[in-house]
Computed example of a mutant assay.
Amino acid sequence: MPYSKTHKSQTKDRILRSATELFCRHGFDKVSIGQIMEVARMTHGAFYTHFESKEALFNASFLESFKRSRVARLAKAPFSIKHLTALVTDYLNLRALRDRGAPGPEALLFNEIGSDRPRIKKLYEEAYERMKKMLETRITALGRLKKLPYAADRETVAEKARGIIAAMVGAVAVARSISQEREQHLILQAAQKQILGILGVNETEFDPAVRKGSAMRLEHA
């Protein structure tokens, strides 16, 4: 009897979840198809029913993790400094990077920094452009709503978006390489202050509820 569509969808999801877990822990090059299928508790041959290659699976894992991530949901939130900074705060949350059950796309890509594989480099470019466009859209909207202390022209908006991305990625990359939790938290907090400065937002004027929520997340990261 042929497998139902539901069964095929469930087995594909099992492979995706197993692959994402292993890619986050070990990186693309150190994970084999056999290891992925062993974690998924499926035969090696079943892999090619759903994916044509390991790179195709990595691509699918990245896209699926982005869809499921809180960052993607926050990107659809109302246009306000509060929500934009909540997006940044969530990205800077180390707990999300350690959560093997539902890691974000950055958890997959950080292990592949410097990769020479064309497909993975393309994923980096796509992820960068997606994040940059999302930030530019929100910064432009905030400028039109007179919520920023500067003119949100195209060049300024692009510069702010680049600065925010550089601060976010750099902070998480450094924090992940340090074992001392207190220092990790201080790095992330410093990055958040830097990003508020890029946005032109005074930290003392920022929403206290969001600051409190951020502190709680960092304390329990």
Score class of each variant (00 low, 15 high):
15 I>A: 01
54 K>H: 07
16 L>N: 09
56 A>G: 07
31 V>K: 03
18 S>I: 01
90 D>R: 08
58 F>S: 05
65 S>T: 12
21 E>R: 07
77 A>D: 06
82 K>R: 02
19 A>W: 00
92 L>W: 00
10 Q>E: 13
30 K>F: 14
86 A>I: 13
30 K>N: 15
49 T>M: 02
33 I>W: 09
52 E>I: 13
76 K>R: 06
51 F>H: 07
69 S>C: 15
84 L>G: 12
18 S>M: 02
93 N>V: 02
44 H>N: 11
54 K>Y: 02
44 H>K: 15
95 R>G: 01
85 T>K: 13
96 A>N: 15
45 G>D: 08
82 K>M: 01
50 H>K: 06
92 L>P: 01
38 E>K: 09
81 I>A: 10
40 A>D: 04
96 A>I: 07
17 R>W: 05
92 L>E: 06
21 E>L: 01
24 C>V: 00
50 H>P: 09
49 T>N: 03
16 L>F: 11
37 M>A: 08
56 A>T: 12
46 A>C: 11
63 L>M: 14
65 S>V: 04
70 R>W: 06
43 T>A: 04
40 A>E: 04
41 R>D: 05
88 V>T: 13
61 S>Y: 03
33 I>H: 09
47 F>C: 05
47 F>E: 06
13 D>K: 09
50 H>C: 09
12 K>Y: 01
84 L>S: 03
79 F>R: 15
34 G>D: 14
78 P>N: 08
32 S>M: 04
57 L>E: 06
9 S>G: 14
45 G>S: 07
23 F>R: 12
92 L>I: 08
13 D>H: 01
43 T>W: 09
18 S>D: 08
13 D>G: 10
96 A>F: 12
63 L>R: 04
88 V>E: 05
31 V>W: 01
62 F>V: 13
72 A>W: 08
46 A>F: 10
19 A>D: 10
24 C>N: 02
25 R>P: 03
78 P>E: 10
73 R>W: 11
72 A>G: 02
85 T>V: 15
31 V>H: 12
19 A>P: 02
12 K>L: 03
11 T>L: 12
62 F>Q: 04
26 H>R: 10
97 L>P: 13
48 Y>R: 02
38 E>V: 06
85 T>E: 09
58 F>R: 03
66 F>V: 14
25 R>N: 12
28 F>R: 11
67 K>W: 08
57 L>W: 07
83 H>K: 07
59 N>P: 07
70 R>N: 02
60 A>T: 10
